[in-house]
């Protein structure tokens, strides 16, 4: 099926959810509201003519100047029909949370953890939402646009909590 036709079907099925359909170099991008994301995904997964059984990718994008600051990108592909569509769910800065799609695709598990780690997006109903690439006591969300690539030395990461405690009293001993 042509990706544009999938987008049309999606718009017919969820007229209130689909915000915008864009196309670039034969790929179709559908922006949706976040509230019924699991319904939309389940429809794409279960409909026999769409059968989006392969979650290629899931990631976050940060647009600090927009009203809806975060986007979660669902890159869906059908192994059966060889067609692809990309869903973009919009989240606001104040409430960056969305329902997890792990019940539909197990492969979403780590992608969602990574999006949470990097952007602070919360996935409701995720079985094990922890930091994945960064240490568990890291502060901040590194891939947000307001997170600098390089900070001043006083602000940089100084190691795990254990090592911080270890050196907390260095000044008492006059260790330089």
């Amino acid at each position: 099926m042509e990706p544009s036709e999938i987008a049309t079907r999606l718009r017919d099925k969820f007229p209130l959810e689909v915000i915008e359909v864009k196309s670039f170099r034969d790929q179709v991008f559908v922006s949706v509201k976040r509230d019924r994301i699991t319904d939309i995904c389940r429809y794409l997964y279960e409909d026999p003519e769409l059968s989006m059984n392969f979650l290629s990718d899931l990631c976050g994008v940060d647009y600090p100047e927009r009203k809806y600051r975060f986007e979660v990108i669902y890159n869906l592909y059908s192994l059966k029909y060889n067609h692809r569509i990309i869903l973009k769910a919009q989240l606001s800065h104040d409430e960056p949370s969305i329902d997890s799609v792990v019940p539909i695709w197990n492969g979403a598990n780590w992608h969602e953890r990574e999006a949470c780690d990097m952007y602070g997006i919360v996935f409701n109903g995720h079985p094990d939402l922890r930091r994945i690439l960064m240490p568990e006591d890291w502060e901040g969300f590194p891939q947000r646009k307001d997170y600098p690539l390089k900070g001043d030395p006083g602000w940089e990461y100084r190691g795990f909590d254990e090592s911080k405690e270890l050196h907390a009293h260095d000044s008492d001993w006059n260790i330089k």
Binding site: K22, F24, R25, Q27, S56, I86
Partner: peptide
């Protein structure tokens, strides 16, 4: 200006680049 996902088959599997 635009977004694109392109996948290639590297020896380990599907390597995809998604550009905004």
């Amino acid at each position: 200006e635009g977004e694109i996902y392109v996948a290639t088959e590297v020896p380990k599997g599907e390597l995809g680049f998604y550009f905004v």
